[in-house]
Design a protein around this nucleic acid. Structure first.
Lengths: 143, 143
DNA sequence: CTCCAACCTCAACCATCCTTGAAGTACGTC
DNA sequence: GACGTACTTCAAGGATGGTTGAGGTTGGAG
């Protein structure tokens, strides 16, 4: 397998070299070194970086991503079932994230052309008492 | 209209007073002052804060939220149609955000039990060449 | 009229996620 | 074997979104 330099990884992943070094310092990715102390990355690192970026875009922290990636083997290229495990773990949180956004969208939408100014359920006409609404079962724009 | 103290707003919105002062310093919300220089908030500020929190949870920055809120009138309580405008503007970006997450979820899911190790379209078996895939039209886990 | 919780300002600090720059080393091409 | 580009480390800086603490004031209840 041909190894990648940090510059090649940077170009192909679309991520600055400084960010790559940072990810490595944080333990999210790993490299070997040449005799001259330069980093060399396996092809599979490209997947890890793509995964990091994708996860970040949906609001996950590097720490969370790091925990997931830590379950991947360091000593061999991850297999489908290694990634499978992560898929399963993440499914609920991705679902949840989607649900939240849909809720916000629905609440905004529902106030378009509706009679919501007289409706108790509308967050725009109702005083959005978040603390009060907890406990009452009505979840208002909340996690 | 009864005005809210910062403590009341904090309790009802479920946001720390320090965050509220910060939002105000950043111009996202506004207050009047008592003769003794204490902040007093209108009820409608509760909606603004709920909106801020909701938007943050879906990955929007305070600056973006601020721009939206800046279109609401300061001198009167926002009407339904004021919020309507924001709803319309935000719809596409919420849709886009959902699409991204669904894409990530689908890609992870599709590698569960599928024959993707032999499929060109699978991001786990394919070397995820983000830069290369731009331009080719195939968007891989990308905005 | 006293008293304490809640308020005030301002500056400093924090976590996260990097970027920038200085000063030096490696690698591959001519 | 020299030349330039890409690499190295380390320290400092920066944006975002706040929190914390010191030192002082306000407001409402008793």
């Amino acid at each position: 397998m041909t190894l990648l330099t940090i510059g090649q990884l940077s170009d192909r992943a679309g991520v600055a070299t400084s960010a790559i070094r940072y990810y490595e310092a944080e333990g999210l990715i790993h490299s070997t070194r040449t005799t001259g102390n330069q980093r060399r990355y396996e092809q599979s690192t490209l997947r890890r970086v793509a995964f990091i970026k994708a996860a970040q875009r949906v609001g996950l922290t590097l720490e969370e991503v790091g925990e997931a990636l830590a379950t991947l083997p360091d000593n061999r290229t991850p297999t489908k079932s290694d990634w499978h495990r992560i898929s399963k773990d993440w499914r609920p949180r991705l679902d949840e994230q989607i649900r939240r956004i849909e809720l916000l969208r629905a609440r905004l939408d529902s106030c378009i052309g509706c009679g919501c100014l007289s409706m108790k359920s509308c967050w725009l006409s109702n005083p959005d008492d978040v603390a009060a609404q907890r406990g009452k079962g009505a979840v208002l724009l909340e996690p």
